[in-house]
Amino acid sequence: MSSRKVTFMGKLRVSEKNLGYFLVIPALAVVAVMAFWPTLAAFWMSLHDISLIFRTNRFIGLENFKTMAGDPAFRNALHNTVYFTAISVALETLLGLVMALVMNGAFKGRGAVRASVLVPWAIPTVVTSTMWKWIFNTDYGLFNFLLKRFHVISSYLNWLGDGKLAMGCAIMADVWKTTPFIALILLAGLQTISHDLYEAAMIDGANWWQRFTRIMLPLLLPIGLVAVLLRTLDAFRVFALIFVLTGGGPADATEVLSTYTYKVLFSTSNFGYGSALAVSMFVSVALISLVFLNFIRLVTRSS
């Protein structure tokens, strides 16, 4: 197709292909400078001992990664991140599926339900955190008040101050904020499934459970996996939600990789080790994506 010449700016004659590259380059340059370069730079910095306070910058090879392997705080943060990600994404997927099925039904006020579902999605994460912090407040929080009113608890609990409860609170806030995203994507997937399929199954005598498991779930699987992948990556790099809700506390009970990295970078000004932590996150995210994408490819090929 390179023979197709087009006139550009009335003078220059370029092929359509070249015009394409010409139009793409500015956007790609932005991405390269703002995303690719800093990623490579972070890799390079992770091989150095850099302190912004003492103005040191010394090449130390893989020393930072050795430190990381023996750092209990890193292990704690990694454990918390995996725990947070696994539980919240699992809950979000289940609840999201229920929400999508409900919104897919034909009923009065469907538009209002969809609008209300978008509310948690649109609210800034920082507001989500301050909001839940207030709800979880020990003495004046709505959560304690309602739970005691309905006799679920006998005395007020210190939700965010108790190491055993704080992570659950963070997960609850995240589930509230991001389930709508999964629900809307699953809903879009549901709407692409033809009604004829259900009708054919009904004529063949399939009950709703069979229709659900044999038609809907398999057809929903590819797009569902994409939604789960996007959410997994988002949950794995969670920062604002936890930073504002608990600050990683109490006693590091909710410290995740992003908040720990942030503290190493900006509280101790240890930019070498902080970059090594950042690189470990980058590598984890890349691995998660690769595993998921291969899985999605397998699923879509087999169906």
Binding site: A42, L233, Y262, M281, F282, V285
Partner: peptide, 11 residues
Amino acid sequence: MFPEIAIVSPL
């Protein structure tokens, strides 16, 4: 999909 925190230090 890049984690934001991963590019913060060089920037």
